[in-house]
Simulated scan of single mutants.
Amino acid sequence: MATAAPAPPRAPSVTTPGSEWLPRILMLNLAVEVLIVVTGGLVRLTGSGLGCPTWPQCVPGSYTPVPHQAEGYHRFIEFGNRTLTSVVGVVALLAVYAVWRWSGPTRTRWYAVWERGGSRRELMVPALVVLGGVVVQAVLGGITVLTGLSPITVSLHFLVSMVLVASAAYLVARRPTPTGPRPLVVHPLVERLAWLTCAVGAVVLVLGTVVTGSGPHSGDANEPARFGFDPRTVSWLHADTVMLFVGLVLAVWLAARLTGTETTSARAWLAVLGVTALQGVVGYTQYFTGLPWGVVLAHMLLATLLVVALTRAVVALRATEATAPQH
Rank of each mutant, 00 (worst) to 15 (best):
G51V: 13
V281A: 14
P53C: 06
G290H: 03
G294R: 07
T179L: 11
V145F: 11
N29H: 13
R24A: 13
V282Y: 03
V211F: 09
M243F: 15
Y170C: 05
R121C: 00
T212M: 07
V172F: 11
V249S: 00
W293E: 13
G142Q: 11
L278S: 03
T144D: 14
C52I: 11
R192M: 08
Y287V: 08
V203W: 01
Q69I: 13
Q57E: 15
V206Q: 06
G41W: 06
R318N: 04
A166Q: 08
Q137V: 06
H217T: 07
A313L: 01
G49K: 09
A2I: 09
G148R: 08
Q326N: 06
L317R: 02
W102S: 05
A309L: 04
L45F: 07
T285L: 15
Q279C: 00
S265I: 01
A225M: 13
T263V: 13
A169E: 07
V130L: 06
W55P: 02
Y170I: 01
L291R: 10
V275T: 08
L156T: 05
S48G: 11
Y97V: 15
A324C: 00
A319E: 12
G260F: 01
R10F: 03
W110H: 05
S86C: 11
I77S: 06
S218Q: 14
L84D: 04
H238N: 06
